[in-house]
Amino acid sequence: MELTIVLTIAAILFGIGIYGVLGQTNLVMIMMGVELMLGAAMLNLVAFWRFMHPQTFSLQMFVLVIMTVMALEAAVGFGIATQRFRSKGSVESEEASDLKG
């Protein structure tokens, strides 16, 4: 019961994250969508740890790895955004069609 509640909340957050990634035009907003999706993944892991395997700490370790991924995604994303803004003056995904075939 409790596990299902938490998984449902995480699923809704994941859905909102997908909407953000697909529907937003700005690179920073797209990154916010990715952060929401990763947050939902962390929520799932903590719920599985709490309600199914409280003695297994690999799950908590995996949450730490996902937190690392969130920080890295933000760092590299902002690096790309800075370079993009410097060379093109905008971070809009609509205008980033340089590699379009």
Binding site: L3, A11, F14, I18, Y19, Q24
Partner: peptide
């Protein structure tokens, strides 16, 4: 600041609903 509204709302809702179904109908 948004584009392709209907596909993105649809995508988010379909994936969210799918995951909710998995969470609800699995015997944990």
């Amino acid at each position: 600041m948004s584009h392709q509204k209907i596909p993105s709302i649809g995508g988010g809702m379909i994936v969210g609903a799918l995951v909710v179904c998995i969470a609800a109908f699995t015997a944990w």
